[in-house]
Amino acid sequence: MIEGHGGDIYRMARVLNCSPSQIVDMSSNVSPLGMPPGLEDYLRQGLRELISLPEVDSEELRSNFANKWNISENQVVVGNGTTEFIYILPVALGIKKALIVGPTYADYADACAVFNVTYSFYLALEENDFKPNIDHVELSLRGVDTVFICNPNNPTGHLIPGNTLKELCEDNPEKIFIVDESYLPFVVDGQNETLINKALKNVVVLRSFSKIFGIPGLRLGFLSASPDIIQKIGRHKRPWNVNRLAQLAGIFLLGQDQFIKDVGHFTKKERTGFLKQLRDVTGLRPFSGVTNFILFKLVGRLKAADVCKRLAQNRILIRDCSNFYGLSDRFIRIALKTQEENNICIQRLRDILSTGNEVLSL
């Protein structure tokens, strides 16, 4: 059972006795601009296609993705979100011992645990703003066959430059590198940092459409790798794993390059403004990053659960990061939303951190 993720607006709406639409969800790292214009109408027109089975292996969508990145169709597989792949990879690749570069997304470790795969962590240090030392990462590769790297990383927001990561993979051809690029589209000119089209036989790249296009409820993701790895994954992937609406959405979204640029520039601007307004607030330390979310450490008496509860009472959800291995109950993550919603969150944070009032239980 998946626990400890953001985006639990339905449970919180029941607790607060309100509609989910009345909650500002800053706990889930989806696009602050919502869905691209035209997607809803496009999907509405596609409803008539639900009377037929979807394409068994998302053939058209897979072909379009391959063409976009100038790779072969046998280097791509389409999935029911990247989570499907994360839980297939340990058994499909026969992973024996994995290294997870953290602090990071818990599902990499959870997927290994499901299949009794031994795993260890390389943890970037707080004093270095959680930026991983690549030389130290390479030293940690001894004895492992697979490496999980989220780039940019969740929840720290740090980006390892594409060329640096490419060199690490090339220098260790006997290791498999699983690189989760779900948040790379939020980075301005992020396409220059991808490993999708770098022809690296020991690299698996994950790409989520849920985050950048604001469609987590549709579940759509891609995996790119060498034909040999794709073949191994295919043996464990179920047919019709992607529903027809998600397939149609993917075809539409592959043409939304301008929307991706708009989200990247909006995110960069709002991130700068968000941090500027909080720079004089005591008890809150931000960490540098490049994504649509920001990691903070609480340095006063309040813990993450306290602040999350207080904000929830104001119908604002943020992420308690205490269940990220390598972090403590003093860390929170806030995903940027519209400017108005960001300003409301800032004011509520100011109130909570300045008063230090007792936390009211929900």
Rank of each mutant, 00 (worst) to 15 (best):
G7N: 11
D8S: 07
M12D: 10
R14P: 00
L16N: 05
C18R: 01
S19E: 14
S21V: 00
Q22V: 02
Q22G: 03
S27D: 05
S27Q: 04
G38I: 11
L39D: 12
Y42K: 11
R44V: 14
Q45N: 14
L47R: 14
R48I: 15
E49M: 11
I51D: 11
L53W: 12
S58L: 12
S58I: 08
E59S: 10
L61H: 07
R62E: 08
F65N: 04
A66T: 01
N70V: 04
N70Q: 13
S72Q: 12
E73N: 08
Q75V: 02
V76W: 13
N80Y: 14
G81H: 05
G81Y: 07
T82H: 01
T82L: 03
E84W: 02
Y87M: 06
L89W: 01
P103E: 06
A106G: 00
D107S: 11
Y108N: 01
D110H: 00
C112A: 13
A113F: 07
A113W: 03
V114Y: 09
N116G: 13
S120Y: 03
S120N: 12
S120G: 10
Y122V: 06
L123C: 01
D129V: 02
P132E: 04
N133Q: 13
H136D: 15
S140D: 09
L141V: 04
L141F: 12
R142Q: 10
N151M: 04
P152A: 14
P155T: 14
T156N: 07
T156F: 12
I160P: 00
P161I: 12
L165M: 13
E167V: 03
C169V: 15
E170N: 03
N172R: 08
K175L: 11
D180E: 05
Y183L: 15
Y183A: 14
V188P: 00
D189G: 02
D189V: 02
T194H: 08
L195S: 07
L195A: 08
K198T: 13
L200A: 09
N202W: 08
N202A: 12
N202T: 11
V203D: 07
V205C: 13
V205P: 02
V205Q: 06
K211L: 09
G214R: 06
G214A: 11
I215C: 10
L218S: 08
G221V: 10
G221F: 09
G221E: 11
L223T: 15
P227Q: 02
K232A: 06
G234P: 00
G234S: 10
R238Q: 13
P239E: 14
W240H: 13
V242G: 04
A246F: 10
L254T: 09
G255A: 07
Q256F: 08
Q256M: 15
Q258C: 03
K261E: 12
G264L: 14
E270I: 00
D280L: 06
T282K: 14
N292C: 10
N292E: 10
L295E: 02
A305F: 04
V307F: 01
K309S: 12
R310V: 02
R310Y: 03
Q313N: 14
D320F: 09
S322C: 07
L327K: 01
I334S: 06
T338I: 06
T338V: 05
E341N: 11
N343K: 10
I344D: 08
C345T: 15
Q347W: 01
Q347A: 13
L349Q: 04
R350P: 00
D351W: 00
L353I: 05
L360W: 02
S361T: 09
